[in-house]
Amino acid sequence: MPYARYGETLESVTKQVEGIRDAFGKGLTRTELQQSLPAGAARNAVDCALWDLESKLGEAPTTLCGLKPVATALTIGIDTPDAMGRQAKRLANAPVVKVKLDAGDVEACLRAIRHAAPNPDLIVDPNESWDIKLLQSLQPLLEELRVAFVEQPLPSSEDARLAELVRRVPVCADESCHTSDDLDRLSGLYDIVNIKLDKTGGLTEAFRLLQAAREKKFGIMVGCMISSSLSIVPALQIAMQADYIDLDGPVWLKNDRTGGVSVKDGWMMPPEPGFWGTAEAVPLL
């Protein structure tokens, strides 16, 4: 999914993919792809297609599965407290609910949501809209309402301010974490990192980020942009090893890919066999 936040458009991403067409004709490998395109949506599309191909040819170096149901967060969009409470009531039986917020009516919105949905794990995502003063003042409320963590509360340019935070709930890096190269500067500031394949530029770097983040004792979330099942199933490879999963991108589409994933009451059902990768699991190398 081309993401305007990083200057991507459908046109720019298509141009990037077309730009390496000749290199593929000369045998460009998935390893070489990592240096041929920057991390982003274009490299993600090509990288995941190559994983699919390698898997179907029996050449993939790792498990490509996602063949069991997983609990995925379902999202409540920004609205009035009453409206968000009504959304939450419909999701009261889901295992995980993710709440989009800005800096307005935070307490009223969160209380309405938690009252309507007392049981789900709750993720709060301000999308860079808070400042450190607001984040600090909300710590008692977040703890009281049993918020699992706050995702990217501050602008990524203000990451250093998190060193001032006396936290009662964990903080997750989203826009601040793209690839494994980001982890050193995030250590001590964030507790969790959100791995999105459109940020890592594909499954190859996503696996690297997963391993490096685990070594540095970060919690793992796997997320997505609004996308079809063809983008979600590769991300399920990371989800199998993640602490939190937010892969409801296809839920927001009128039409998804035939044979893809489905979501019922917060549980993501696997795609049909052969949709992407293989149905046969092999050990990680």
Results as ranks from 00 to 15, higher is better:
M1Y: 09
P2T: 08
Y6R: 11
G25M: 06
R30G: 11
L33Y: 05
L33C: 09
Q34P: 04
Q34R: 13
Q34I: 06
A45D: 03
A45G: 15
A49Q: 11
E54I: 10
E54H: 09
S55F: 05
P69K: 02
A73R: 00
I76M: 10
T80R: 07
A83V: 14
M84L: 07
M84C: 09
R90V: 07
N93Q: 14
D105R: 09
V106M: 12
C109E: 02
A117L: 06
I123T: 02
P126C: 03
L135P: 00
L138R: 10
Q139S: 04
L141G: 04
E143R: 10
E144D: 14
L145V: 07
V150E: 03
R161Q: 15
R161T: 13
A163P: 10
V171K: 02
C172E: 03
H178S: 11
S180K: 14
D181A: 15
D182L: 04
S187V: 10
G188S: 12
I192H: 00
V193M: 09
L197G: 06
L197V: 07
K199W: 03
G201A: 11
L203W: 04
T204A: 12
A206W: 00
L210P: 01
A213W: 03
R214H: 15
E215I: 09
G219D: 05
V222W: 01
V222T: 08
P234K: 08
L236Y: 04
A239I: 02
M240H: 11
Q241W: 10
D246W: 00
D248N: 02
K254S: 15
V261E: 03
P270W: 02
F275R: 08
A279T: 15
